[in-house]
Write a protein that binds this DNA or RNA. Structure first.
Length: 423
RNA sequence: GGAGAGGUGGGUGAGUGGCUGAAACCGCAUGUUUGCUAAACAUGUGUACGGGGAACCGUACCGGGGGUUCGAAUCCCCCUCUCUCCGCCA
């Protein structure tokens, strides 16, 4: 969430910038100022009340000690008044704070100046394209045919065991999956990331901390008996490592990489979007997360982009880089770059990574701070990116590398798979 | 799942109703001394909100929430987490 003082001091600017995200804040922001003023006023009154009550209590103590029982009893009356007054003030203050909080969390993050307006996906800017799309001739197959042909992934079996969107990887398919995970983790560790293996379920506080709650509640699987949520991405548990943490400036940059299974309900998805590996309820992903000093977070964003590009290059996949437009940048992000690989069997681009700078938007919710040079605590910046999401990489790899004799395994993966062809 | 014990500041740990935002020790920071390091000594060392140009002042916070009381870290209730024993178990 945005910082209250910033919103109030820069009202016109905030309204203007949020328009790029197609968000009209013109009605909300004056309300925020109003509620905030009310909050301050109530707190002032409450504090004065409590201060008086504290003083009275102290003097009563002294009077008792001196044996002046009557005087003490007289003072108790005033104390009682103050108490009921404080109670009502405290209630009003709590209500006001809740209302203020609701208003503030309804505002999305302010987009970076380079983010262009746009309605949605179709208006994202394609910044560059790399690699060559292989010409596979007329007999090329989409990955769902290939996985069947070579018995790599059994979608129907997953349906039997769990339901649609929970595939079963088998044999060389399972091995290739594991190879990709290891490859991605090793690459990140080589780039200075600390590997973490986080819990796959999180509590309510964590889901709130990264912004899944309250807005995206329907997107997560919820374990009602224990009030836990299956993670939609490792970002949730990993970023929550830093919830309520005050770092030292010397701790920057904090770099974590995590492999995890991810669970998404994907209510409302249908058709070719969900065919095969394109969209699953459970999938694997390697996620990179950084916490950085506000002055350096955009340098870090570049570093993370370069890391993702490095992976795509090493895998030899044709890819393109997009800067998301205002309509497609997520609620919490200031600037996001997407990476798509070309899935030759389907003749379409598939998103495999999304790299974002959240600036202090997540940190504010998380209360993730650091001590600056002056000993003041301020919010850190958080960033994350997929490096990479497995299923679509798997889809593109097996489609693009299909030959008459089988599917060729990229060289960088062979030391992990132990085989160089699937046939 | 059953029984018991316990959650105090960065750490250890005192504190059973007022003088406790909290002893002491450790750590950390700054300063003095010392040729350097170390040691010793001195001072300082939580977070949030509000007020003030600032020094500073007020309020809240001793796992979380509620209650008793003029007054709660301290008493009562609920929740939660940790530890020990038993049960079950990868």
């Amino acid at each position: 969430m945005l910082q209250t003082n910033y919103i109030i001091e820069n009202q016109a600017e905030v309204i203007e910038k949020l328009k790029i995200k197609n968000f009209d804040a013109s009605a909300i922001i004056p309300q925020i100022e109003e509620k905030n003023n009310l909050r301050k006023k109530l707190q002032g009154e409450l504090d004065a009340n409590l201060a008086e009550a504290n003083q009275i209590a102290k003097s009563i103590g002294l009077l008792f000690k001196e044996g002046k029982i009557e005087e003490a009893n007289e003072k108790k009356a005033r104390s009682g008044e103050l108490k009921s007054l404080s109670k009502s003030l405290a209630e009003q203050k709590a209500n006001t704070e809740t209302e203020l909080q609701e208003l503030i969390i309804s505002l999305p993050n302010i987009p970076h100046p380079t983010v262009k307006p746009g309605k949605g996906e179709e208006e994202n800017e394609i910044l560059s394209e790399h690699g060559t799309i292989p010409d596979l001739g007329p007999n090329k197959l989409p990955h769902w045919e290939l996985t069947k042909k070579y018995d790599l992934i059994d979608f129907e079996l997953g349906v039997k065991i769990t339901g649609a969107g929970f595939p079963v990887y088998k044999g060389k398919g399972a091995k290739l999956q594991r190879a990709l995970i290891s490859f991605f983790l090793d690459q990140a560790v080589d780039s200075g990331y600390l590997e973490v293996l986080p819990p796959l379920m999180v509590n309510e506080d964590s889901a709130y901390g990264t912004g899944q709650l309250p807005d995206k509640e329907g997107q997560m699987y919820h374990m009602q008996a224990d009030n836990l949520y299956m993670i939609p991405t490792a970002e949730v548990p990993v970023t929550n490592i830093y919830r309520n943490v005050i770092l030292k400036a010397a701790d920057f940059p904090v770099k974590n990489v995590a492999y995890s299974a991810c669970f998404r309900r994907e209510a409302g998805s249908y058709g070719k979007e969900v065919r095969g590996l394109n969209r699953l309820h459970q999938f694997d992903k390697v996620e990179i997360v950084q916490v950085q000093h506000p002055d350096k977070s955009y340098e870090t964003l570049e570093e993370m982009k370069a890391h993702v590009i490095g992976l795509l290059e090493k895998l030899g996949l044709p890819y393109r880089e997009l800067r998301l437009c205002g309509g497609d940048v997520s609620f919490t992000s200031a600037l996001t770059f997407d990476y798509e690989v070309y899935s030759t069997g389907q003749d379409r681009w598939l998103e495999v990574s999304s790299v974002s700078n959240f600036e202090s938007f997540q940190a504010n919710r998380l209360k993730l701070r650091f001590k600056d040079e002056n000993g003041k605590s301020q919010f850190a910046h958080t960033l994350n990116g997929s490096a990479l999401a497995l299923p679509r990489i798997m889809a593109a790899l097996i489609e693009n590398n299909q030959t008459e004799n089988g599917i060729k395994v990229p060289e960088v993966l062979q030391r992990y798979t132990g085989f160089d062809i699937i046939n």
